[in-house]
Design a protein around this nucleic acid. Sequence first.
DNA 1: ATTGACTCTTTAGCCGACTATAGGGTTTAC
DNA 2: GTAAACCCTATAGTCGGCTAAAGAGTCAAT
Lengths: 143, 143
Amino acid sequence: MNTTANQVFKIGDLAKRSQVSVGTLRYYESLGLIVPIDRAANNYRYYSPETLQQVQFIKKAQSLNFSLADIQNILKLRSTGESPCSLVDKLLNEKIEHLEQQIQSAIAFKEELETFRDRVSNIPPTASSDPTICQHISAVSLT
Amino acid sequence: MNTTANQVFKIGDLAKRSQVSVGTLRYYESLGLIVPIDRAANNYRYYSPETLQQVQFIKKAQSLNFSLADIQNILKLRSTGESPCSLVDKLLNEKIEHLEQQIQSAIAFKEELETFRDRVSNIPPTASSDPTICQHISAVSLT
DNA sequence: ATTGACTCTTTAGCCGACTATAGGGTTTAC
DNA sequence: GTAAACCCTATAGTCGGCTAAAGAGTCAAT
């Protein structure tokens, strides 16, 4: 089978183009995330260019903390009556909310830490060079 | 040993107060994250109240995406000359930067998604109720 | 026709952070 | 004094997301 002229990829081509390993692509298939268009007599997987887009979608979603289970759920809706958009949106809103909480918490944590650092720097040199002081202050106060 | 009057906890007490399971506490000890003050004749672990603060510190750091290895590194500095504050600060800045990147990406992703959702909603009812269309648009365009 | 690069399946291993289980000792309350 | 509730160690299992290895078939170029 010609894998360049008529835009059909073998798994190695797809791996190179998507920067995802062959093993990972087979793993994704085992989860139902991607499906080859054809499985000819030689038993090789052949993919359409759309699969490349699909893999990039998976990678993008993953980079945004979507689990493969989340992605499975989104893709599973292809076979139901519901539009995946509402689920994607719901999941996305959850992720964004979680991220926002985290970043707020991280900012607060950092501010606390800076306070402690300043407190430590006002301790006489001998004492402030003792790491147990910073450690102790951090451990006790950051809770 | 009296575990209430003189402020010494057994592992179960510590577990209840910190909301961390007994098994997890023993696991933390195996990583050197916490150390009991005493290991009396009965071989039971006994903890000072400071350990509770320490566990809460670990949990807080974890909730901010610090790995136990990160926390190990921070705590390890107790035994070296360097103040843990600078490492905590470095790790924290890395986490915050990562989170900020993620949230920016998530916001952009959400905006893209909303655009696609709107695009789908302008497709005639029969077509827009076909989930493969939203799926397809998402898969192709969100990369 | 052979070599090397590719492909296939199946199975096993890895990492982090736990959780569970087995088998046994200790403490505490009644 | 006995039974429940606690503690101990050591080992194994779980989950997610892969990666690696074994053993075998296929394809393309020379």
